[in-house]
Design a protein around this nucleic acid. Structure first.
Lengths: 337, 337
DNA sequence: CTGTTAGCGCTTTCAT
DNA sequence: ATGAAAGCGCTAACAG
């Protein structure tokens, strides 16, 4: 990998100043057409190309949007939710000729990831603005949009998680189940510690429906099941072994819900006759399994696209901070009666 | 967005040199602990963070791997093949604490995309090294790994497309079909113009099997179907309307094959009794549809992971160029007898 | 242990 | 129409 030609190599070759070379590339109209031609020719011969880092240093622009995700890149790309979300961001990047950089916690900490990333702005997913790891971001002095998290000084894009959860729980309760089983992302104390997180909001929605129905919240079975189809499957199987006999399950993600349905079928239960299940998110797979999954739809693609639009707007001018909340909608399919 | 503090702002504040500040961040052991503490405190007060572009200019490192894809980002993230491929790259990025930048043709041309991207190295997918748009890459003087394309001066990672296609065609021919229907990515002339492309290699594999079986290549029905489930579906429906009655279909991608199966089922055909179908790639969905899709498996994840490993190796030392070819394997499932 | 001095490669006034 | 000079913000010798 030989040393790259620099702008002054080209300049020397042609016998002009570096300025002229710079102009030839960025502002050819300022230069004599013949000179431009000579310079370009020399550049081609020397294999010269402008150094993007030097350019970025000066222009403060890289043409890249950063997406900070709270999981490993491996997990992100395996996750259909993020696939759709990134599609939304990607569609805007296509329009604006921007690159899309996914960054995940480096060396165990987001801080260094944030400090190093060569981007013009960040979309941060699943973390509140005041999170310890997010705070350093402000030092970078570049625009930030928070998705699925709370923000007070910058733009945020969320969906109405509480309302969606409420609708799901209410629907199930209206079928007269003696009690609900709720599968969460994390143990409840953790969930409630993360004030205003997606999980906390969904839990709050479930709780509101239960209390409105005049039932006792404590009587419901709330179990952590992490995420992923396998987690949901194991969780339901485990409950069954413990002697639990749920008739209605609410899951905080479709993946978990799909796992629950799979487990129920394995146990010989009929879905939805013996067991009703409602997921959350409405990922593509929800509509592909049999029976098709009833779930709370959220506009995942649109969420990504909107976040990217808002970020680009802040990049171009000093747009005021906005707080966007997209609607969710209960979609009844085959796993509810 | 107020002006950011620079290293010398911090230096002035504390009454030390910029060098000291630099050390405090990158090499604290060189400095008196008390000094470091002071500097860090001042940095915190001023909201200072090192400028990544300045750093990159000097260190020639951004900690980012670039992936150049021949389609829009929207299409990439919608494509399960790329999801798996990016998972492979992502898993290595996780290990090495690198970011992953997806870049697609900007303003209709790869050239500017390549010139601007702030990355340490590129993985180029689906383009040969000598492609017009790829050539400028060499000017950047950074390592490149070609995937699904031919390279003579740099490392490439491919799968044995021809062999996989050959096995698929041979299998179908052994069932005694009078002729095969082959659904390609592009019209054949285009396909053959792109010498050594994935499509050309697969076509060649099909052809070899046909000729070995003593059949006439020209007698087979070769139709372009672009890509995507809908494309496959429409293509088969169209052929049917034209009066064609295929009994065996080879598809260059699983997506197309899934579309064909869907169309056949719509037309009341029994699969595999009336129609046998073999896809290519073995994406996760191949094993989820009913009947499950027979296909040529290729190690997509491993291909991504290997490409990233090889790229990182070239980043760290001047590894010699390698030519890696991963094996494909015919996987017989429900759409073949 | 800390400061001085040069750049990294490029763009951009301001002259000529 | 072209060039000289001054940085962008940081790091890396090399002195002291």
């Amino acid at each position: 990998m030989m040393k790259r030609a620099t702008i002054s190599d080209v300049a020397k070759r042609v016998g002009v100043s570096p300025t002229a070379v710079s102009f030839a590339f960025n502002n050819p109209s300022q230069l004599n057409a013949a000179t431009v031609e000579q310079i370009l020719a020399a550049a081609r011969e020397l294999g010269y190309a402008p150094n993007p880092h030097a350019r970025a240093l000066l222009s403060r622009r890289t043409g890249v949007l950063g997406v900070i995700v709270p999981q490993s890149l491996f997990a992100i790309y395996a996750n259909p939710y993020f696939a759709t979300f990134l599609q939304g961001i990607g569609s805007l990047c296509d329009d604006q000729a921007l690159g899309l950089l996914t960054v995940s916690p480096l060396e165990g900490s987001l801080t260094s990831a944030i400090a190093r990333a060569p981007v013009d702005g960040f979309i941060i997913v699943g973390l509140n603005e005041n999170h310890d790891e997010v705070a350093p971001l402000r030092k970078r002095g570049i625009p930030v949009v928070i998705v699925d998290g709370h923000a007070h000084t910058t733009t945020s894009v969320n969906v109405d998680d509480e309302d969606g959860a409420y609708a799901a729980a209410r629907h199930l309760l209206s079928h007269g189940h003696p009690h609900l089983t709720i599968l969460t992302f994390e143990p409840v104390p953790l969930l409630e510690a993360h004030k205003a997180s997606v999980g906390a909001n969904r839990l709050q929605g479930y709780r509101r429906a239960v209390q409105e129905a005049g039932l006792e919240w404590a009587a419901q079975l709330v179990e952590p099941s992490i995420s992923g189809v396998e987690d949901g499957e194991h969780c339901f199987l485990f409950l069954w072994e413990q002697g639990q006999r749920p008739t209605a399950v609410l899951c905080m993600s479709d993946a978990v819900a799909i796992g629950v349905v799979r487990a129920a079928l394995q146990l010989g239960l009929r879905v939805p006759d013996d067991l009703e299940v409602i997921g959350f998110d409405d990922i593509p797979a929800a509509n592909l399994i049999t029976p098709s999954l009833s779930t709370v739809h959220q506009p995942i693609f649109e969420k990504g696209r909107t976040a990217a639009e808002l970020l680009v707007a802040r990049l171009e001018g000093d747009t005021p901070a906005e707080t966007v909340v997209l609607a969710t909608e209960l979609v009844l399919r085959g796993t509810t009666r």
